[in-house]
Amino acid sequence: MLVQFYNVSKIYSNGVKALDDVSLKIERGEFLFLMGPSGAGKSTLIKLFFREEAPTRGQIFIASRSIVRMKRSEVPRLRRNIGIVFQDFKLLENKTASENIAFAMEVVGANPKEISQRVAEVIEMVGLKGKENSFPGELSGGEQQRVGIARALANRPLLLIADEPTGNLDIDTSREIMELLFDINRKGTTVIMATHARELVKAARKRVILLDKGRVIADNPNGESIV
């Protein structure tokens, strides 16, 4: 079991109850969609995985380690095992595609040889060959998201988490990005993706967890009955 949530609640300091008694389990190698209306708590749930937020109540295990009682000094190790993909890509504008990817490895102290090898590998994997030296401003939205995904993969994470990765892309580009994520999942990485895109989820036939007002209201193994 890769991820276990037990009765997790999150109340923000302003009193908003974003998650209410959420329990769930995720197996290694799964592909999981998080759905639900705006404000349902999807992003909040995602932030709990890598300790951008800590839960108010409940227990969370990732790879059998509690990340609730985790010390601040142990958080970097946790995060190196989790790749994060953002809706707005969050690329550094003054770095090229390959520099953006290398950045994720440099700052965890990887050695330069390893970095250049791995960067070439993930560039190939996400289909960006030939665009290595382009700056984000010179890339299309879909290409920028590919850089974002490559960066998330650079440190070989166990778990890839994407919060609305196709939210800023048109439908055709979104489908391409979905294919890429499925491909990554087939190669063994567990993927969790929050999205509003019903068509994509419907076509995928993967597990879907539906949130509403901070509660899990459905958990369907192949998404049929939900979408």
Binding site: S73, R79, L92, F103, V107, V108, G109
Partner: peptide, 17 residues
Amino acid sequence: RKEIYLMKLVGATDWFI
């Protein structure tokens, strides 16, 4: 700040930053 935020999220230690 964006760079620092990203460093934190990919698992850089505070001292490395």
